[in-house]
Amino acid sequence: MDLPLFYAKDIAPGTATYTMDEPTSKHCIMVLRKQKGEQVLLADGRGNKFTAVIADDNRKKCVLQVTACENVPAPTPAIRIAICFTKNASRIEWFLEKATEIGIQEIIPVLSHRSETEKFKAERLQNILVSAMMQSQQYYLPVLEAPVAFDKVVKQSKDSQRFIAHCLPESKTHLWQAMQPGKDTLVLIGPEGDFTPAEIALALEQGFQAVSLGDTRLRTETAGMVAATMCKCANVAG
C-alpha cells in the first residue's frame, strides 16, 4: 500500500524533525488513524520527497522523524496553459484540480477583453492545487501565476511552441497534429465568448499558431483540459 503523502511547504533538505501544522496533524492522526512508528511521505512542492516516521502522534502537533530525502526529477518538457477565468468559479476550480492531477507545470490566468476579472481567490485556488498534488502522488506543485493581461502573455512568452485555440471559422491545424513532442509548450484558452479578432491577430503576429481542439464547441474549462491532455499524451507518444 502506498504511504500517505502530506504537503510540507516549509520543510528543507537536511531537516531531521518536522512538526505538522494542526489541520494536517488532525488529518493524519484522526482521519487516517496513523500512529507512532508508522511511515509517511512529505512533499515540499519543489520536487523534494521526504520519508518520515511518526515520533509523536499528537493530533494537534504531530512530530515526524525524517529518515530520507530524495529529489524527484522535474517532468519535461514544460507544459503551460494560459486560460481565461469563467463567471462560474467552480468550473475553473475543476480545471485547476484536473490539470494538476495530469501534471501541468504552470497555469496562467489571462485577462482578456471578455474574461471574468473578479474570480481570482489566490488562497483557495492554491489549496486546490495542493490537494490535487497530494491526491495524485506528485512532488511538484504547479505554478499558479497572478492574473496577467493578454497582450503581456503573448508578447513575453519564450516557449518553443505556442498555440492559441479559438473558434473563428478560419483554417486551423488540430492541436494533436501541430504538437511537436519534447518542446516546452504554451496553449492559450479563451473566455466564454472566445478571444476577440484583435486578440487573435495579435497572438498570430507574435508567433502563435492557431489550433483547433476538435469539431465541437467546448466550454472554457473543458477546452483547457483537452489541451492539457493532448499536450501530455503527445509527449508520452513521442
Score class of each variant (00 low, 15 high):
residue 107 I to P: 08
residue 76 T to D: 05
residue 66 V to D: 00
residue 101 E to Q: 15
residue 94 W to Q: 02
residue 111 L to M: 12
residue 119 K to L: 09
residue 91 R to S: 11
residue 105 Q to K: 13
residue 103 G to F: 10
residue 112 S to L: 11
residue 115 S to D: 07
residue 85 F to T: 02
residue 93 E to Q: 12
residue 79 I to C: 08
residue 118 E to G: 10
residue 120 F to G: 09
residue 86 T to A: 03
residue 117 T to W: 06
residue 59 R to K: 14
residue 88 N to L: 06
residue 109 P to C: 03
residue 58 N to R: 01
residue 124 R to G: 07
residue 119 K to C: 09
residue 128 I to D: 05
residue 127 N to D: 13
residue 119 K to Q: 14
residue 96 L to V: 10
residue 87 K to W: 10
residue 132 A to T: 12
residue 119 K to P: 01
residue 133 M to K: 06
residue 75 P to R: 13
residue 116 E to N: 00
residue 72 V to N: 06
residue 54 I to P: 00
residue 117 T to D: 07
residue 130 V to C: 08
residue 69 C to E: 13
residue 114 R to S: 07
residue 69 C to I: 10
residue 77 P to F: 09
residue 60 K to L: 05
residue 68 A to M: 00
residue 82 A to Y: 11
residue 95 F to D: 01
residue 63 V to T: 12
residue 94 W to A: 00
residue 86 T to F: 03
residue 104 I to K: 06
residue 112 S to F: 10
residue 62 C to I: 02
residue 73 P to A: 13
residue 84 C to G: 02
residue 105 Q to A: 15
residue 68 A to V: 04
residue 85 F to C: 07
residue 121 K to T: 07
residue 128 I to R: 10
residue 105 Q to S: 15
residue 99 A to F: 05
residue 112 S to W: 09
residue 60 K to W: 08
residue 112 S to H: 12
residue 66 V to Q: 05
residue 67 T to A: 12
residue 120 F to Y: 14
residue 71 N to T: 14
residue 58 N to L: 00
residue 113 H to F: 11
residue 80 R to N: 09
residue 87 K to T: 14
residue 110 V to A: 02
residue 128 I to Y: 08
residue 71 N to C: 08
residue 113 H to E: 15
residue 117 T to Y: 03
residue 72 V to T: 13
residue 70 E to S: 12
residue 78 A to G: 14
